[in-house]
Every structure is written in structure tokens, then in C-alpha cells.
Design a binder for these strands. Structure first.
Lengths: 319, 319
DNA sequence: CCAGTTATAGTCGATCTGATTATAAGATAT
DNA sequence: ATATCTTATAATCAGATCGACTATAACTGG
């Protein structure tokens, strides 16, 4: 499987193998414009900072860095992944990146200069299928992916690349799967169709690449967060972390749609939400929605204690 | 939410905040005796070692350590969680623990002295519900959990502790949920009913504690692995990593039952497996099963490429 | 040849799910 | 005032799924 030559015998002690550990946060909110991520450096980086001895835990270190850099206090936090790939961060440094997903509401914003909210889909324009498949997939990505596939040396690899591209991007009549966000990004990286793949190496004359990029492997971490969140909303009631205290069922639906990047059947969504008893009517209504005034709901917190694995099942199409 | 006082302004550079990173492996296999984990130190520790500069990646570092310490080559690997809690590892050191789950077959065993396979349920005797609820839950855990709950200062905490214990351990007529393995361990830790919770602190006169313990937070990592695996087999076809190349459907069922710690309805299991086209008949049969000879199946590998998120749905009872 | 064991096929009813239609209640335009 | 638009909410229907159960087949060991 793998070489076993690397390490010396026994355990090395002391400072010999010390590394730097970075904490990186993907802070997500949803507003009318869609799903947003909290960024610094004018959208080029995620909030992050080194894990320090003073930090009580990884989570508290992360909270401290995000609050320092953006003024944003974090509520719900969940660990995403720990990366340490040598080639993916740029220089020849050895850094461990421990990434987290945080869910919040944009209004919680304190005033801070360096921060800004950016739409997910600025970084991943091929991921938003709410108005059908975006043109970029067939017009830009597909030809370039085919070109990449056909550039392989042997037939088996060509076949495999074509198949992977087709599965990830729903080509050849396949169904779109919104949870493959990370695989799509990794495929584009492998095909050198994203800017990150071209750093350091051959800086050939490059055609424009789709989607805005970020420093180091931050866009990859964002893709990880999107994939995780799109998967998780289907079986855990995490959407409510993104909602205001009171909301209508349509607002809830629009939030889920913004995250998953696809539209949901309205009656089925309502039925599923209501029968799970995750929300309760407040009695109040709002007329701000345009048509008939809608009931305002609130999240039924106590249900969480009793049903620890209760899923927010969502009627997203399967295959 | 959290204090923002800790870190200094800006990014600290250089070696100031270096930490040690440990790679820890939960290597799982299933044999006739049940689900097993690969251990060293006579079952007291999981294979582990520091992440070193020589390692190409976290995964290759892990593979190297496991192979060095146990002779076991690893196939399927999946990241579990990254811990860095100061209090949970023992001494006042600062160590990041990056844990992985690996699935393998026990027969792959090379000869190596320090290793041994241990049953999950030696460490978590309350987790095996294949023959109904084990007596330890009602006879030992329940009274002690109640005692712990009633020891709280205020009524609200008492109520909350009782509720959490009831949810986790299926008391008061609640249904058992095998996926809560980690929550159960954490609850016992909080209630100081496991040996790990008593280290370093007050070494009072202690009644015997249930289940075998491990060094540092290794049992906690094992609990994390069990919970993850029990959840994952329901929607991803990972069971096959634990199976020999050819197997009968009952062997497959017994493996799933061993992992989940509960029994499955046989006709329904077969139906679900077959209709998902994850396996294919080989035509061969085996008479080693006692009764009527059983068809030997093999895992249908190609299906994985085409259906990246295809779940191995399992007919485990819901609520 | 009978009892025991396992394999395999099939049935039945309840529930779930996806899609569709119908009706209600407001705002806005003419 | 009436028509029309928008959104909210209720109801229906057929197909798929799921859990529990029954029946039959094929082999082994006394």
C-alpha cells in the first residue's frame, strides 16, 4: 500500500518533529443574495491563525482568531478536516491546517474593517443549479475536461478521466449531485483548470480559469465545507443555525435551496418540516412576503435534546 | 461566545507556537468473535506515532507507523477527528491528536510481536445489543448514572443529566440508538464512571468501572470510530472493506450486525443488498455454513465509480 | 428418514415520497 | 370594485420503500 521507510524506529521525542498548526474557519451565513462565506483580504482568504499555547482548545483558538480578524462571534462550530499536504499550501513549509465550519447569521456582524461577505458561487460558479444547470458547465468546463481526459497517455486513463468528469459534473445524461462539490473542485484541480493548480509550477500561458480563487488551499477548504453542509442538512437540523429567530417556511426553504444549490418542491418541503415537529407556529404572521401573509415559525429547540440524531430530512431529489 | 483575549495581534511566525502532532489509528476488522480493533501494549493503546517531516502526508505517516508497530498494511483509510484538549491526554503537554479509521481484514496479518486484536466490546461492554440489552446497562450503569444526576446542585441540572442519560442509554422505554456510542462514552466520562476520568485528579476510593480502559484518550478515539462506522455503513458501502473477496449474504449480515451491535431482519437485509446491485453472484457456493449451501457473492466494484454516493442502505430499525 | 440448520423466494400492509391540483388570503393594477 | 398577481396552505394520488412475516428449498447429522 505505502512505503514504511520514512520514520525512525521508536518514538522521537522533544522538539524534533514540531510543526505549525493553523486554524481555518469557514463561516457561513445565508442572505437574500444567497449563501455567503466570511472572508478577509478582500475575499482572498478565510479567517485563520496559528494554534497557540494560550488557547484552551482548538475551538476556542478558532473563535479567538475569527473574532479578532472579523469581529464575528461564532455560535455553531463543527470540525471539517485536517490537511497537511506539502504541495497544496504553496511554499515548502510544513503546516497542518485544521479547518472548521461555522454557521451564523449575517446580522450578528460587529464592525470590523478587514472582513467581507462573499457569495459561495463567486468561487464555485458551477455549483448553483437553482436556475437549472449554469451555462459554464457545458460551455467552458466540459470541453476543457474532455481535452484534459484525452490528453492522457493510455486509453484506460482517458476512459477513467472521462467517466469521473461525467459523474462529477452530470454529463452524458447523468443526474446532478450537489454533494460532490469537493470532488468537482479536486477534479478541476487535477485537470489544472483552477488557478491554484498552476502556482509555483509551470506558469504557462493560461486561458482564464473559472471561479475566483483564494490563497493557499482556502478554496479547497471552502469546497469541503460546502460538500459537508450540503450533506449534513439532509439528516441534521443545522439549517436553523442560519435562520433568524422567526421565519416563514418559504424563507426556510429558500435557505436550504441556497445551500444545496437546487430547488425544492414546496408542498413536500412543508410537509416534511411540519411532520418532524422541528418547528412550531408562533401565531404571528408577516405580510412582507408579497402575497398572502405567512405564518411565522420558530425552531423547536427542545426537540433536539430528545432526538439527538433526528434528521432534517429534506425532499431533495435522489437520482 | 468565547474570549478573544488569548492571541497576540497579527500572525506569529517562526517556531513560537510549534506543537507536536500525533497520528493515531483505529484499525478495525471483523472476525467470528465480533468486531476487533488493532492494539499494541497488550490492548492498552492504539497504534500511533508523531507526524514527522519525512512523511509525505498525514495518511502516509499513519500507514508507516501502523506498519512499523504492528506489521499491518492499511487499505481503506478515513480521517476521524483532530483532538487537542489539554486535560484529556494526561500530562500538561500540548499535543494534537489526528485520528484515523482504517478498515481491513484480520487475515492480512503479518507477524509482529507487539500487536494484538481486541474486541470492541471489551472496552464498551454496554454497546453490544445483539442478544438484547446487556445486563450491565440496567444493573450497573443506570444506578450510577442516576446517582450522578441526583448529585447535581440544582434541579435543572439534575433533570438535564437524567434526560441525557436516558436518551443515551435508552432508559425509560426509549429506543436504543447504536450511533450514540461516542455520546455514551462522553457521558460516562463526565459522570466519572470510566477510569480515564479519574486520572491525575482525585484518586478517591473507586468502585470498579465498566469496560477496559486505554492510555491517554485512546478509548475516546475508539468510541469516535465506532460511532462513525456505525453511522457510515448505513449510507456508504464501506462494509465490503471488511469482507473477504467471496462471502455469503449471511456473512455480510453478521458483519454488519457485529459493527452495529444489533440484529437485522434477514429477508429484508437480503432484499436491500440485492436491489442495490452492490454485489454479484459468483455462481460458486459454499457448504461450510451448516445448512443449505449458500451462494458466494463478490463486491461489485465498478458500481462505486458510477454511484459515488450510493448508500449501502441497511434495514436497521429506526425509532 | 427425521430433525435441525441455513438459504432463498414471496406476501402484505403501513408508511414514505414525489408530483400535482385546488383553495385561501393578501397586494396591486386598471 | 374587479381582475390579476403573488404567496400561503391544504389535499390528493400513485408508486416506491420498509418492516414483519410466511413458505419453501437444500443440505447435514443423527
Amino acid at each position: 500500500m505505502d512505503q514504511a521507510k520514512g520514520p525512525r524506529k521508536g518514538r522521537t521525542i522533544g522538539k524534533t518533529n514540531n510543526v505549525n498548526a493553523d486554524l481555518i474557519a469557514v463561516v457561513v451565513a445565508v442572505n437574500d443574495a444567497g449563501p455567503c462565506v466570511l472572508t478577509i483580504e478582500q475575499g482572498a482568504a478565510l479567517p485563520s491563525g496559528p494554534f497557540e499555547l494560550a488557547h484552551r482548545s482548538l475551538q476556542s483558538g478558532l473563535r479567538a482568531w475569527v473574532e479578532l480578524q472579523t469581529g464575528q462571534p461564532l455560535g455553531y462550530i463543527e470540525q471539517l478536516y485536517t490537511f497537511a499536504d506539502r504541495d497544496r499550501v504553496g511554499a515548502n513549509q510544513r503546516v497542518i491546517s485544521i479547518s472548521y465550519l461555522a454557521l451564523t447569521r449575517e446580522e450578528d456582524a460587529g464592525a470590523s474593517g478587514r472582513r467581507s461577505w462573499a457569495s459561495w458561487y463567486d468561487y464555485f460558479p458551477w455549483e448553483d443549479h437553482r436556475s437549472g444547470r449554469p451555462p459554464i458547465v457545458l460551455e467552458e468546463l466540459r470541453p476543457r475536461l474532455i481535452e484534459w481526459a484525452d490528453g492522457a497517455d493510455d486509453g484506460a486513463t482517458r476512459f477513467d478521466r472521462r467517466r469521473r468528469a461525467a459523474v462529477a459534473f452530470a454529463l452524458d445524461g447523468r443526474a446532478w449531485n450537489e454533494e460532490l462539490a469537493l470532488q468537482r473542485y479536486e477534479l478541476l484541480y487535477e485537470a489544472a483548470l483552477v488557478e491554484e493548480a498552476k502556482r509555483g509550477g509551470v506558469s504557462a500561458i493560461l486561458a482564464s480559469v473559472p471561479g475566483r480563487s483564494m490563497i493557499a488551499d482556502h478554496r479547497r477548504i471552502l469546497a469541503t465545507a460546502i460538500a459537508r453542509l450540503r450533506s449534513k442538512i439532509k439528516y441534521r437540523p443545522v439549517v436553523f443555525e442560519l435562520m433568524p429567530p422567526l421565519f416563514t417556511l418559504l424563507q426556510l426553504q429558500r435557505t436550504v435551496e441556497a445551500l444545496s444549490g437546487r430547488l425544492i418542491n414546496k408542498p413536500n418541503f412543508r410537509r416534511l418540516i411540519e411532520q418532524q415537529e422541528l418547528v412550531e407556529k408562533t401565531g404571528a404572521t408577516t405580510a412582507e412576503t408579497g402575497g398572502r401573509p405567512a405564518q411565522l415559525y420558530r425552531f423547536h429547540h427542545t426537540i433536539l435534546d430528545e432526538r439527538p440524531v433526528a434528521g432534517t430530512k429534506l425532499p431533495l431529489p435522489r437520482a
